[in-house]
Simulated assay, not measured.
Amino acid sequence: MTQFLVIYKAAASAAPEAPEDQQAAMAAWGAWMEKVGTHLADPGNPIGKSWTVTASGAAPGGNALPIMGYTILEADSIEAACQLVEGNPMLSDPLAEIEVAPIVPIEM
């Protein structure tokens, strides 16, 4: 099986603020993780505001949709990994995006 990096992108305003909304969001994430089951290699974490580093230095950066978090899944193909992402709670925001990319091991 191959590991896939799942990157969640959404506006910061998409995060629930009210405690009951946060609880509902966590329940939805728990249900999705249970559905994914043994394909969940690392549930991941939320990610704070990023900076961009170039040859000129570092500065607060980010795209129109900042990266909000990540998960690592295991699947036989990228198509299978994308199917596992279907129903992910992040997709309840119509402006959110989820990117799925294979993690390519480097042999030393």
Rank of each mutant, 00 (worst) to 15 (best):
W51K: 15
A14S: 15
A10C: 08
A25Y: 15
M26P: 01
A55R: 11
Q22L: 13
Q23M: 11
P19Y: 02
M33C: 08
G57T: 05
E20S: 08
K49L: 05
A24Y: 12
A15L: 12
Q23Y: 03
K49A: 13
A12E: 05
A14M: 13
A27H: 07
W29N: 08
A27C: 03
A14I: 09
V53W: 09
A41V: 14
Q22W: 02
L40R: 11
T38H: 09
A12L: 04
P43H: 09
M26T: 06
G62S: 13
A31G: 04
P19E: 05
A18P: 01
G48E: 10
I47K: 06
P19D: 08
G61R: 13
P46I: 09
A10R: 15
A55L: 12
N45Y: 04
A10P: 00
T38A: 12
A11C: 01
N45D: 13
P43E: 06
G37N: 12
A27Q: 09
S13D: 12
K9V: 14
A14D: 10
N45S: 14
S56L: 08
A41P: 01
T54F: 13
D42L: 08
D42Y: 05
A25L: 09
P43I: 08
V53S: 07
N45W: 03
T54A: 05
W32M: 05
A15W: 13
A11T: 06
D42A: 07
E34C: 03
A11I: 02
A18R: 14
M26E: 08
T38G: 08
A59Y: 06
G48R: 10
E34G: 11
D42S: 13
P46D: 15
A11P: 00
W32D: 01
W29D: 04
Q23C: 00
M26S: 11
Q22G: 10
W32A: 00
G57Y: 09
H39K: 04
T54Y: 13
M26V: 06
G57V: 02
G57F: 05
G57S: 10
T52I: 11
M26F: 15
A12R: 05
T38P: 01
D21F: 02
V53G: 04
T52R: 05
G62F: 15
M26H: 12
I47L: 14
G37V: 08
P46Y: 06
T52M: 07
A15C: 01
W51I: 10
G48T: 09
Q23D: 11
A15S: 07
M26R: 14
P19K: 15
G62L: 15
H39P: 01
N45V: 02
V53A: 13
S50D: 04
A15N: 02
A27L: 08
E17N: 04
L40H: 14
A10S: 15
L40F: 09
